[in-house]
Design a protein around this nucleic acid. Structure first.
Lengths: 341, 341
DNA sequence: ATGTTCTGTGGAATCGTTTACATGGCCGAT
DNA sequence: ATCGGCCATGTAAACGATTCCACAGAACAT
């Protein structure tokens, strides 16, 4: 593969001059510029990004460590991250942690070794020493979706507080009183927070949230299935199951179907995260939608600000309730939930 | 960040020696080895992958240029690729082409500039000059899922021939005669091939495939919707629509639902690619499943063989028909009650 | 004692860039 | 005419690793 030296020889100039036209440095005459460009063309020369990175100490690459690529929420996030990064002149390397802290560490280490310019992370746990060290060492980092309390980094996420409240109101309005929830890992902020807010919202309607109605999941389909089976085995099963992510909702649907039961007649189902398929499931699923694309873009902007020395902005965007049919039909649509406005 | 020089100084040896212990070269005494390792530990030293790559001309990185990350088929492919690559000591950089040839070129160029060791590609078109040049220049490359005829590279893909034949037989057995297909882009092998095989299989049952029953799609949901609308507007609409990928099937479902029609009573639907959601749609969708994970793994093995100088293997694995309820019930299973809500 | 082989280590070149500094020619101001 | 400054270009030193080669000393054979 042709190097800058070959181009220099071909154009009859020094490598410094070639480098200058390539980085369009002002002080190079029009004549040599065209001569160099011709040589570049003739040899099909492309600068070696590895060498360039070594010299400049910049890779123009962002790392994105994601909790689970098979989760449509995260793939949409990844897509918007890549798009915004590309628009700003950066590439993205994605590391899929599969909800496993050890894999997450593997990817963080790998990305750090590659000297990425900055890291976008949605932690699967409370933060490994490795990640905390990286943050402390000054690696530009931004949390997206999930974050680690006590670590002083910009956070880009959505706030489900109002939407969850709306959901509980919706369920209450439909006559449901026994509400169960499938939680995510307690080590994640989203795992904890969604349960907390749900419990609090229920409290405002005078409803208790007994421990038996809290299923422990891990944001993967299989755990949603197991938790739902356990609910269905209860002497007094819940009337509604709220799965705190889309994959656990899928698992819950599996479990209900395996029993020969029907949604929402036998048991109602609601989820967190909206995805295109939820419109087409049987029945369409009531869910809380996050502004996923906007989240990804905001996260990239914050990270690039950090990298390029501008003050980064933490961003919190509201999630909103999307009512479909999986929790039952309103009697006559007496009071529309406020989120539909 | 600490470099190899710092480690050398700390351990009181030369950089050459440090490098040797790091790459566990045999000729280094036990004493110095432990001394160096201690220094590494003390400084939290990590080798700079960029510098290493420049020197060794290897990045231990594979590029994967994928047609569409939002397509669950490709995300599953990407996941298996990453897993197998990791097992073999490689990282993967994913480039999402979004079914756009220009973006595909952007990513290929970017990956080449980064001097990846090899490229896995599922081309969105007939092959840009860039890609053909790269192949001709000897860049290790393997086609996965789709390929470009006339380019002499290993191909890892699945063969839907038998499965499509089975599908037509299934439809015929159910009494359907007017079958329509939503094709993928003619520039892709999978786009062309699925139509060809479908037409041929229909021929064997004495059925014609009129042009009006061939919708032109682009493997994205929206095109599936439009093609289906056109079918439904026909004086004599088809009895079955076969969408040649999962996203166009989603679009078709949208179109049918928008008309207030029902699957399979008013019109039947079949798809290519199986994904978890197809079990939960209303109704569950009859589809042709590819061994996606195995495809990804085989592709990585072929590519790594190529990179490391072993003879690579092209692989073709059979797809298989998965019958669900979206094409109607078999007569032998007389009207199992449809769960209508 | 001398020569040979081996072992562990260091010196220095190298990979392909960027960039600080030096240089030489030309121009305008004095 | 002389000088200072600018413009276009070249020289060479980095960046952080790997690796060829040289070399000192030990071990061994004669």
């Amino acid at each position: 593969m042709a190097s800058i030296k070959d181009v220099a020889a071909e154009a009859g100039v020094s490598v410094a001059t070639v480098s200058r036209v390539l980085n369009d440095h002002p002080s190079v005459s029009a004549g040599t510029r065209t001569r160099v460009l011709a040589a570049v063309e003739a040899l099909g020369y492309r600068p070696n990004a590895v060498a360039r990175s070594l010299r400049t100490d910049q890779t123009h690459t962002l790392g994105l460590v994601i909790s689970d690529v098979l989760n449509p929420y995260f793939t949409e996030l990844a897509r918007s991250v890549e798009e915004e990064a590309r628009a700003l002149g950066y590439s993205v390397i994605i590391g899929n942690a599969n909800e496993r802290p050890d894999l997450q560490d593997h990817h963080v280490r790998n990305l750090l070794d590659r000297r990425i310019d900055g890291l976008l992370v949605s932690p699967t746990d409370g933060g490994s020493p490795l990640m905390l060290d990286a943050a402390r060492a000054g690696t530009p980092m931004v949390f997206v979706d999930r974050w680690i309390p006590g670590v002083d980094l910009p956070v880009v996420r959505s706030d489900g507080r109002v939407a969850i409240h709306d959901l509980v109101a919706h369920l209450y309005g439909l006559g449901h009183r026994r509400l169960a929830i499938i939680a995510g890992p307690a080590a994640t902020t989203t795992g904890r927070e969604r349960v907390e807010v749900f419990r609090q919202a229920m409290g405002e309607f005078g409803l208790p949230l007994p421990d038996a109605y809290i299923g422990q999941g891990d944001f993967q389909a299989e755990s949603g299935r197991r938790a739902t089976e356990r609910f269905l085995n209860l002497a007094e099963p819940p009337e509604v199951v709220f799965a705190t992510d889309n994959l656990m909702a899928l698992g819950a649907l599996d479990a209900v179907r395996a029993r020969g039961l029907r949604v929402p007649d036998d048991i109602a189902l609601a989820a967190f995260d909206d995805i295109p398929w939820f419109v087409h499931t049987d029945p369409p699923i009531t869910t809380i939608a996050q502004p996923t694309g906007e989240l990804g873009r905001a996260a990239v902007r914050a990270l690039v600000d950090l990298i390029e020395g501008r003050p980064p902005q933490s961003v919190t965007l509201p999630a909103r309730l999307v009512v479909r049919r999986s929790c039952g039909e309103a009697a006559s649509c007496p009071q529309a939930p406020r989120s539909t406005t």
